[in-house]
């Protein structure tokens, strides 16, 4: 399954709930304000790093760039553009949005 998270982890529990619901082998795509969860040295970096053990974490590069944080992304996060977003939707059996 593909999960999308569009909320900053610093103001919402969408990411937290998403990671609880994301079973092994699924992909979590951070979009819109959700991309702030990709920042290295942040208070959620450890959570993300742990999640990477079982799920793929991806982030929408245009959203990172727009927010001026493209060069602050932690290692191991897969960066995609909108075309890559479409591919993720098609490669997985369904998409769940954590709004």
């Amino acid at each position: 399954m593909l999960h999308t998270v569009n909320k900053s982890p610093f103001g919402s529990n969408s990411l937290e709930t998403c990671l609880k619901m994301a079973t092994s082998g699924s992909t979590v795509l951070l979009i819109e304000d959700g991309v702030y969860a990709a920042l290295k040295d942040s208070s959620v970096a450890e959570t993300i790093a742990q999640a990477m053990g079982t799920v793929t974490i991806a982030a929408l590069a245009p959203d990172l760039a727009a927010r001026g944080v493209a060069d602050k992304v932690m290692d191991g996060i897969k960066l995609v553009d909108y075309s890559g977003f479409v591919d993720l939707v098609c490669e997985t059996d369904k998409t769940t949005a954590w709004l």
Binding site: N6, E32, D33, L60, Y82, F85, V86, D87, C90
Partner: peptide, 19 residues
Amino acid sequence: HQAADTAYKFVEAALEKGH
């Protein structure tokens, strides 16, 4: 909200890929 923008960019990319 950005939702309508993201949806638009997504749809545009999907169409470009022939979906």
